[in-house]
């Protein structure tokens, strides 16, 4: 399934709302994405950082997985 810009905006909103009391986490997520955009980090690097940042938030991890290319996903502990 192809995700659209609206899906990305909606996901970013979800992250922002979740960490409304701790906006540093939302800003860190934006920083990770900026570093990916500027190619400072690659896809596995993003996966590594995001899995640490969203540890304990399996719904956010699953939402993020939807943006990953085939063959990549962050495992959610059961």
């Amino acid at each position: 399934q192809k995700l659209k810009v609206e899906d990305a905006l909606s996901y970013l909103d979800q992250v922002k709302i979740r960490f409304a009391n701790d906006p540093g986490i939302y800003n860190k997520f934006l920083d990770i994405m900026k570093e990916f955009k500027s190619q400072s980090i690659d896809t596995p690097g993003v996966i590594n950082r995001v899995s640490q940042l969203f540890h304990g938030h399996p719904d956010l991890v699953l939402g993020f997985n939807a943006f990953l290319p085939p063959g990549y996903r962050i495992e959610v502990p059961k």
């Binding site: 900026k34 990916f36 955009k37 990953l68």
Partner: peptide, 20 residues
């Protein structure tokens, strides 16, 4: 680039960050 959807998310995040 091998991760077009992730690039799209990164682009949207960059715009969002610039606006806030």
């Amino acid at each position: 680039l091998p991760a077009p959807q992730l690039v799209m998310l990164a682009n949207v995040a960059a715009v969002t960050a610039a606006e806030s």
